[in-house]
């Protein structure tokens, strides 16, 4: 443990998340993965959007960027493309990533830019106190779904894979050890990697839907998931309606920044140390 404390801005703790909120567990898992990989703190950038999950970077001792709702991946694209040598991690929530941020999510995946995205999915908008989100299961309650959510959810992992992500995994705050391994895999993968972490919101989701507190929610998460490796050998009725957890898709493909660097290498005309811009204006549109 003490080896992970050095990755935290300890003077900023305790954090703002409610007692029993899973975001702390997911953040801890990510940090443990970073500690295992001994990443250089000066070369890690953590970017987030808006929402409970997006407060995470404020507690982490890296270059951290808390951006606008849904736009973390677009900001992160700018950082990564400008400085491909930095390890860029996006920490986002189910609403931040799949609702307002959905367009940036599918395009970052399509580009296969080397960004690791941790989606802390607690099935609700927590910061604004309990509205349903694109990941709130059908029929469940939210302050804006008082009669039960009539909408269907995304399968975030299938969405990521279909959009072009080249590493997709789903973990949970219950299976904390596995989550560390999945984060580690995602961080070492060169290309767009997504880890959807199912996590508990006792204050709103648990209470509003009468599932219970943190522990009951963790049990609820455990019961609605099945390990993808186990599912392969289990009879269908054992896995019906369950979410697969573990590494779900891995298919390394050329990475966006690498491909762009190849373009630069081809195109680079020596401009004898010219600092930006075209040396002779008359030759620029030949």
């Amino acid at each position: 443990m003490s080896d992970i404390l050095k990755y935290f801005r300890q003077d900023r703790l305790p954090h703002i998340w409610c007692p029993g909120c899973g975001h702390g567990t997911v953040t801890g898992a990510l940090v443990r993965a970073i500690a295992r990989l001994k990443l250089d703190k000066n070369k890690v950038c953590v970017v987030s959007g808006i929402g409970c999950s997006s407060r995470a970077p404020g507690y982490l001792d890296f270059d951290t960027l808390h951006t606008a709702h849904g736009r973390a991946l677009a900001f992160a694209t700018g950082i990564k493309l400008a400085r491909p040598d930095l390890k860029v991690i996006v920490m986002t929530g189910d609403g931040d990533c799949t609702a307002i941020g959905g367009n940036h999510f599918i395009h970052a995946a399509r580009r296969n830019i080397d960004i690791t995205t941790i989606v802390m999915n607690n099935n609700i908008y927590g910061m604004t106190s309990g509205q349903y989100s694109p990941m709130t299961p059908k029929g469940f309650l939210g302050t804006t779904a008082p009669y039960g959510n009539v909408e269907r959810t995304f399968d975030l992992c299938k969405l990521a894979e279909a959009a072009g992500a080249t590493y997709v995994a789903r973990g949970t705050a219950y299976h904390a050890q596995m989550l560390v391994d999945l984060c580690e895999q995602a961080l070492t993968h060169r290309g767009f990697s997504v880890v959807e972490a199912l996590t508990q919101c006792p204050t709103y989701f648990g209470r509003k839907n009468k599932v219970g507190g943190a522990v009951e929610l963790l049990e609820w998460i455990k019961d609605r998931t099945v390990n993808s490796k186990a599912a392969a050998v289990l009879p269908p009725e054992k896995t019906a309606g369950k979410l697969l957890i573990g590494e779900l898709y891995k298919n390394p493909q050329p990475e966006f920044c690498d491909e762009y660097d190849k373009v630069i290498a081809q195109v680079q005309r020596k401009f004898d140390g010219f600092r930006g811009g075209v040396r002779g204006c008359e030759q620029n549109s030949d």
Binding site: S2, L5, G24, T25, G28
Partner: peptide, 12 residues
């Protein structure tokens, strides 16, 4: 330690 959301317990 793994599940603590607040990093409040460490086993040595």
């Amino acid at each position: 330690e793994l599940r603590c959301p607040d990093f409040a317990i460490e086993i040595r």
